[in-house]
Structures are given as structure tokens and as C-alpha cells.
Design a protein around this nucleic acid. Structure first.
Length: 822
RNA sequence: GCGGGCGUGGCGGAAUUGGCAGACGCGCUGGUUUUAGGUACCAGUUCUAAGGAGUGUGGGUUCGAGUCCCUCCGCCCGCACCA
């Protein structure tokens, strides 16, 4: 493809200028209205791929557009530079994760520059920078001192592939690791946790007003998983003074409780197990506790495994509603970590209980009347209560309230809210992360590393393997230290922090990396926060976004961020992913189409335009055989525009005529369309509108009659401004050619449509007969109903079709249409 | 199973509040320029012979439905023993 300008040279030239001119460096006291635009900072995996191109093109467009709207736009970038891939790669290559990571940061950084993305590089942060680590550790210690970080033994997720424990959020439902895909094991280990559950309620409520994609909000809500119910006691049959506490969201179904179930981990299991049943029970417990999540869940799909997964304990409890003795089972479908670890089982209204009861021959009592056509086993819908004594006839909500009252009086019942969300496990047995700044002293226990000794930085000469022991644990020099309190020998914590801790506060550092001696100055950071537009991938819908929300709330509460909003990201946009052959285009799958392939031919501008034009930004993009042709089409558009901007083949006329007016109207209507597209993430329609306008203007300027110079200049210069955020290089170049010595197109003011020109002085009104178009009339847009009707009825085509007959009804919707009903 | 979203030409996709379906682009067809190919430029391109039909299926509301309501079918995403 022959281009009318030297793409490579032009793009390099402007990239150099932007790196040096400071246009996109903003100070915290900038007097302009502020706008914080942020793309999720990338993990440095090497040169940018198409997913990066798409992400950072959107981000750059927002930055340049808002700048042209007169705002001081904070556009920072950095690197999520701690992480497992670098450590694993370093083990393989026998190098150090730092050198590996820093080389890739360099690559990715120049890749983004090559894309034409502009940032305030003075604010750059990366997780493994000791200056950043210092504050990551300061925050950890502040959480600890505030009781938000604690150390506890718990059954945790251990990934053999990653050789570390994982957070719940990093384990899939099928029990595999989010990163490596290995089957995760359960181990009882002492680990560090953040008390994110303290914020469950607030994290749930504060989702509502956020301008985020609905599905992300739904995912957050589901993850937190609030449920309201009653916790009460089932008295033990053999010892009525004692009881088994259970949690239920359906107290109204109490009359249908025909057995109870406790989790294999339940502390009362031993006490409830009779000698006759002891063998069965211990067999089940052994299997349940050693089984992986996968094995434990796999059998739930069919009823087959259920028999083996539960055992009778030999004990009975009393149903407080019926006073009947019901058996207590132990089964692994009840989780030890949720609610009280024990349930009342209602097979008539709960599917899992129904399946279990069926296999074990336990009675089923229905307590809610299902609809006549109901055919399933358990019925969980609404309906009148039956077989339920004093609850009979009530619907579910009313029965719930009454049953709760009853339980409060007779079974030590209390209403209770439970959450699915668990505390965040933050310690990792790996090297390439931020060390946890704690020292263990025989006398003083856990002691914080004093502020003046931060950051704790890991030594370089560490043997990294995947033994499962923290690499730092075997480094005696690092490990052995003295107690900050008594000076006696002590040992350092050897675990590092989950890398999600790094990305949980980086936006604050971006807002103010300048104030010495602080992670950020709250007053300075408050000038930018919250982030006005956050952009990233849907894969972070739960983990990163939930953690970052928690961090900010916690920082405000413990006094590190007074005056800051409690939510970090006001608006979130999640872009679609790039797919090829139906799967995600990714480095690990080796199916990438490198952006570099395009830089020499269509340029960064051409590729950017493609990503903007390909479809709605939120949708996935399929990379197909057709894609290269579409990309060529985008470059062709740039070239056609460039030629027009050089007045190639243009004829001129001297006086302003009707054709000029028509072009100006088209131009101003396009301004409105493009701006609308920018405001509602409809960049594909913005590009389409500009293409359409180019067609109109080119045809006009090259016609026999020609163009008026002033009109053409207005059209081209305005189009240059609108195209500038999308294709920044070629627009900068052409603007410079047309306006040598003047300020760049990128600091011009975004065009505003003239309402007079946007307004149509005549519109096409369609005349329908029985809903079918019979005539088109040019009418005044302000035409009233009566005028529209009489115009339509006097149209020759209509008169002929009517042939004297009177219409039944005439619907006039001026100025768009008149529908004549016969 | 539960929750969310989506079905429009050969393809990617456009369509304020219900009011000319298919903007824009790709591809394809024809033409101009060119020794030729490519580039560039111009014209055409939902189906149908006409009349008409047409936005996954069937129904409904309405003068009028891609758009609103219900049924079914298909696809995508998330969650999935959370009591």
C-alpha cells in the first residue's frame, strides 16, 4: 500500500516531541478542571500485544479528548512488576527476576510509546521499586496495627504448580488454580489475612451508585454473597441442655426438618458420634478432609456419590417446631467455613437436602404448597404453607417472620446475616513479591519492622525453587535479625505479599508521588480522586476491583487517607478481548498477531483506528482473515483524508454558495455525532461519522463546481481536531503542514457544533397508508399536526390512492410521518 | 441449576423517545486511469421476476415494533453444594 506520507518517520517524529514537550505532565495544583484517566497498569510481560493496544488506545483517546476539552488530565502509567511469571522464568533461565522484569518493563514501555500513548512519566510507579515497597509495607503495618491484618491457622488453598497458597478469589469453582490450572490442595497452615469481611456490608452497598458495567457490579455482589436468615439451636436429644447451632435462610420450612447435617470439620462431631458409628464417620471425615475441592464437588452433579459422602453420627436432635427427634448426619456438602458449619435439612424445599434424603432414605415433608404443575423434588418457590402447624396458610415472607419469632422464643434464635466473602489471604511463599515487614521475637512475639528500617528488601542471592518453602526462609542472613524491641536475636517473616496488594493502592501513588516522606499526601491525592475513568479488562471484575475498594476504605478508616472518597473508581469501562479462532489471543496460547507487523505499513494510527472502528469497545473482537483488509481500509481512510488536507484534486470557487452551506451543515452534524460517540463509548460510530463526512466533503471539493476555500479549511481543520485523539500522529503532522508554527492540534479546543447548522431547515416527512410508505415530502421541521395532515392528504399519490374514499383515521407525527389508515 | 447479556445482509456492525431497517467499513460486481498487476478514483451491492417480503421462533400491545410484553430456540459470560 503506497502511503502519501512517510508513516514511520512521521510517527517517530511526533512520539519524540510528545516525550519532550510536557503537554501531558500535569501538576497537582493545575487550575484547570481535573480529570483522572487510568488504564489498569500492566504486568510487564514484554512487548505490547493487541489486547494492550486496544486497552491503551482507548485510554489514550480519553486522555487526549479530555485535554482538548480543556481539562487537566492525569494520565499515569506504571508496571505491576512483582509476580510469579517473572520468578518462574528466572528459575528456568537461571537469572534474577529483577533483571528479567526490568528488561520487559523497558520493552513494554517503548511499545506503548510506539503506539503514541502519552503519559505523565514523572509519576511512573512500579511495584518492585524500593520506594514503592516502603509504602506497601507501611500500609501493611498500619493495617496490622489497626487489627485489619492478622495471622491465623486456617485450611487454605495450596497450589502445587505455583508452590504457594492462594486467596479464595484465585481458585476456580472446580478447584483449579486461576493461574496455573493445577488442582489446588487444602492445607492447614498459618498465614496472614486481611480482614476484608469487616467491610462486606459496605463493599456490597457502595457498589450500587458506581458507574460500572452492570455485570461487573453483579459479579461483585455475588462474590460478597450476603444472605439473611436465622441462627438457632437444635437441642440434643440425649442432652437437652446442649444444642447444635444451625443457620438457615428458610426458618419458615422448620416443620419440614427431618434431619440435620454437620460439616466434617465441625468441632462437635466427636461428641455427637456414637461408638457404633465411629468407624463410618471417621472414614468419611478422612476422605472429606483429604479430598481436593474437585473431588468433593464433582460427585454433586449426579446423585451417585452422595451415599458415600454422608454418614449417620448416631445422635439425634429435636426439631423445635415438631418436637420430633431427627437424626444428625455428617456430610461434606455442608461446609465448615460457612454459617455455623451445621444445617437443618429440609428435603421438601431444598434440592441438595432432597438428593441426600433420597439416597439415605430419609423422610420428605413438604411445607410449601407447590403450583399444580410442579413436578420436581424440592420446591423452593413461594406458596401457602402446609403441614406447618401455626404457619399453615401463610406465604413464605409472612411465615419466615413468624418462624423467626418462634425460634427467638423457643430455640435461642437470632436473626443473622452471613456472607460468602472470606478474609483475604495475603501471604505467599514466593520470592518475587513485597516482603512482609514483620519480625518474630521469642519474647515479644510479632513485632513491626520500625519505620526507619523500611523497606525490607529481599537480598539478591536467594535460591529460588518451588519446594513450597519461602525462598527467603532459607537465607540465613536475611532471616536472622534482632528484635526491634529488645535487641535479642529474632527472625524475619519469610513470606511475601500477594501482588494484588500492590495494585490496591497504586492509583493513590499516581495521584501524588511527589510529597516526600509519605505514600501520598491525602490533600494532594484528594485533588484527583476518585478516578474519573478507569479502563481495563473484565478479568479483574472481582479480584483487583474488590481488593482496591477494600484498601481505600480501610486507608480512610485508619487515618492514612483522610478526606478521600471511599470508592476509588467512579467510572469503569471494561473493554472486550481479542479472540482468534474462538479463543482468547494470548501469549500463553502462542496465537498472537504482533502489533509490530503493522507499524511499518499502516502505522500506529492505522492500527488504533482499526481498534476503534472494529465494533463497540465493550465487545470482543474476532481476529479473522478479514481483519487485515479492514485495517487497510482504516489506513485508506487516513490517506484519503491526508490527500484532501493537502487539497489534492480540489477545485475552488470564490463565492459562498448553497453547496458550502450544505457542507457546513454536514460538518456540524458530524461534530455532534462524533462527540456523542466519544461521550458514550461509541467510538465505532464516531469513526463511521467521520468517514461519511470525508466522503461528502471529498465529493464536493472535487466536483465540477468546486469548494469555497474557507469552507474547506473549516471542514478539514475541524476534522483534524476530531480525529486527533484517535490518530494522533498523522493529525499532528497534517496540522503542522497546514498551520506551520502554530500550536499543536492536540492542544486545540474540541469543536462544538453550531446549533443553527445542526438544525435541519427541511426534513423528509414520510406519508404512510396502512403503515406502507406512499410518499415522501420535504417539510419544515416545525410543521404542526394539522399542516402535516393536510399536506399529506393533498399529495397527488395519496389523492390517487384514496380515489375519493375517506380515511378511517389519520395519525400525524410531525415532522417525521403521517400514517393514513383506511 | 441460578444470575447477567446477546441473536439485524456474504462478514464486522449502524439505527434519540416505538416512526424511511441495513449508516460506515470489509468483501464482491462493473467501470475510469495504467503496457499489465497493484494503487487511486467512480458506480452498484438484503432477498425477490413483479407485487411484495424481511431484524433467531411463535404470539401479544400499537395507526405503526429491530426497539415494548410473553413463549420457545440458539449463543456468550459469570457463579455454582454458601444452607
Amino acid at each position: 500500500m503506497a502511503r502519501p506520507f512517510d508513516v514511520k518517520a512521521v510517527e517517530a517524529k511526533w512520539q519524540d516531541r510528545w516525550a519532550n514537550d510536557g503537554t501531558y505532565e500535569v501538576d497537582n495544583d493545575d487550575p484547570r478542571e481535573r480529570f483522572f484517566a487510568l488504564c489498569m497498569y500492566p504486568y510487564p510481560s514484554g512487548a505490547a500485544h493487541q489486547g494492550h493496544v486496544r486497552n491503551y488506545t482507548f485510554g489514550d483517546l480519553v486522555v487526549r479528548y479530555q485535554t482538548m476539552r480543556g481539562k487537566a488530565v492525569l494520565s499515569p502509567i506504571g508496571f505491576d512488576s512483582f509476580g510469579l511469571p517473572a520468578e518462574n522464568a528466572a528459575i528456568k533461565a537461571g537469572s534474577h527476576p529483577r533483571s528479567f522484569t526490568e528488561a520487559r518493563m523497558k520493552e513494554l514501555g517503548s511499545s506503548l510509546r510506539r503506539l503514541g500513548a502519552v503519559y505523565d512519566l514523572r509519576r511512573e510507579v512500579f511495584s518492585h521499586d524500593p520506594e514503592y515497597m516502603k509504602w506497601s509495607q507501611t500500609i501493611f503495618l498500619a493495617f496490622w496495627k489497626a487489627g485489619l491484618a492478622y495471622r491465623a491457622e486456617a485450611p487454605v488453598n495450596w497450589c502445587p504448580g505455583c508452590a504457594t497458597v492462594l486467596a479464595n478469589e484465585q481458585v476456580h469453582a472446580d478447584g483449579t488454580c486461576d493461574r496455573s490450572g493445577d488442582l489446588v490442595e487444602r492445607r492447614n497452615l498459618e498465614q496472614w489475612f486481611f480482614r476484608i469481611t469487616d467491610y462486606a456490608e459496605e463493599l456490597l452497598h457502595d457498589v450500587d451508585p458506581l458507574e460500572w458495567p452492570e455485570r461487573v457490579k453483579t459479579m461483585q455482589r455475588n462474590w460478597i454473597g450476603r444472605s439473611e436468615g436465622v441462627e438457632f439451636e437444635l437441642a440434643l436429644a440425649h442432652d437437652p441442655a446442649a444444642g447444635l447451632r444451625v443457620f438457615t435462610t428458610r426458618p419458615d420450612t422448620g416443620f419440614g426438618v427431618t434431619y440435620a447435617v454437620i460439616a466434617p470439620e465441625h468441632p462437635m462431631l466427636g461428641e455427637l458420634t456414637t461408638d457404633e458409628e465411629r468407624e463410618n464417620v471417621s472414614e468419611l471425615v478422612a476422605r472429606a478432609t483429604s479430598a481436593s475441592e474437585l473431588e468433593r464437588t464433582a460427585s454433586s452433579d449426579d446423585g451417585a456419590g452422595l451415599e458415600k459422602r454422608g454418614a449417620f453420627t448416631g445422635s439425634f436432635v429435636v426439631n423445635p417446631f415438631t418436637n420430633a427427634r431427627v437424626p444428625v448426619y455428617v456430610a461434606d456438602y455442608v461446609l465448615g467455613t460457612y454459617g455455623t458449619g451445621a444445617i437443618m435439612a429440609v428435603p421438601g424445599e431444598d434440592e441438595r437436602d432432597f438428593a441426600f434424603a433420597t439416597v439415605h432414605g430419609l423422610p420428605v415433608v413438604r411445607t410449601t404448597q407447590p403450583p399444580a404443575d410442579f413436578e420436581g423434588g424440592a420446591y423452593s418457590g413461594d406458596g401457602a404453607h402446609i403441614n406447618s402447624g401455626f404457619l399453615d396458610g401463610l406465604d413464605v415472607p409472612a411465615a419466615k417472620a413468624k418462624a423467626a419469632e418462634f425460634l427467638a422464643e423457643h430455640a435461642k434464635g437470632v436473626t443473622k446475616v452471613n456472607y460468602r466473602l472470606r478474609d483475604w489471604l495475603v501471604s505467599r511463599q514466593r520470592f518475587w513479591g513485597c516482603p512482609i515487614p514483620i519480625v518474630y521475637c521469642d519474647t515479644h512475639g510479632m513485632v513491626a519492622v520500625p519505620e526507619d528500617q523500611l523497606p525490607v528488601v529481599a537480598p539478591d542471592d536467594v535460591t529460588m525453587d518451588q519446594s513450597g518453602q519461602s525462598p527467603l526462609a532459607t537465607h540465613e542472613e536475611f532471616r536472622n535479625t534482632t528484635c526491634p524491641v529488645c535487641g535479642e536475636p529474632a527472625r524475619r517473616e519469610a513470606d511475601t505479599m500477594d501482588t494484588f496488594t500492590d495494585s490496591s493502592w497504586y492509583y493513590l501513588r499516581f495521584a501524588d508521588p511527589f510529597t516526600p516522606g509519605q505514600a501520598f499526601d491525602p490533600v494532594e491525592a484528594a485533588k484527583w480522586m476518585p478516578v474519573d475513568q478507569y479502563i481495563g479488562g473484565i478479568e479483574h471484575a472481582i479480584l483487583h476491583l474488590l481488593y482496591a475498594r477494600f484498601y481505600l476504605k480501610a486507608l480512610v478508616d485508619i487515618g492514612m487517607a483522610p478526606g478521600l472518597p471511599r470508592e476509588p473508581f467512579k467510572r469503569l469501562f471494561t473493554q472486550g478481548m481479542i479472540r482468534i479462532d474462538g479463543t482468547k489471543m494470548s501469549k500463553s496460547k502462542g496465537n498472537q498477531i504482533a502489533p509490530e507487523n503493522y507499524y511499518e505499513t499502516v502505522g500506529a494510527d492505522g492500527l488504533r483506528l482499526f481498534h476503534l472502528f472494529a465494533g463497540p469497545p465493550a465487545d470482543d473482537v474476532d481476529w479473522t482473515d478479514q481483519t487485515d483488509e479492514i485495517i487497510d481500509g482504516c489506513a485508506r481512510f487516513i490517506d484519503r483524508f491526508y490527500r484532501l488536507g493537502q487539497c489534492e484534486g480540489v477545485r475552488f470557487h470564490d463565492t459562498f454558495d448553497d453547496s458550502d452551506l450544505a457542507v457546513r451543515q454536514a460538518l456540524h452534524r458530524t461534530i455532534a455525532k462524533v462527540t456523542d460517540g466519544f461521550e458514550r463509548w461509541g467510538y465505532n460510530t464516531s469513526v463511521a461519522a467521520l468517514m461519511e463526512l470525508l466522503n461528502t466533503v471529498s465529493r464536493w471539493a472535487r466536483s465540477e463546481e468546486g469548494a469555497h476555500r474557507g469552507t474547506l479549511d473549516e471542514a478539514v481543520d475541524t476534522m483534524l481536531k476530531m480525529l486527533a485523539p484517535m490518530a494522533p500522529h498523522v493529525t499532528a503532522e497534517l496540522w503542522d503542514v497546514r498551520h506551520p508554527g502554530e500550536p499543536s492540534v492536540h492542544i486545540q479546543t474540541w469543536p462544538v457544533a453550531d446549533p443553527e447548522l445542526v438544525k435541519q431547515e427541511s426534513v423528509t416527512m414520510i406519508v404512510q397508508m396502512n403503515g406502507k410508505v406512499r410518499a415522501r415530502l420535504e417539510v419544515d421541521p416545525d410543521i404542526d399536526e394539522e399542516q402535516a395532515q393536510s399536506l399529506a392528504l393533498s399529495d397527488p399519490a395519496v389523492v390517487e390512492a384514496l380515489s375519493g374514499a375517506a380515511p378511517t383515521r389519520v395519525v400525524a407525527r410531525p415532522p417525521r410521518l403521517v400514517n393514513i389508515i383506511l
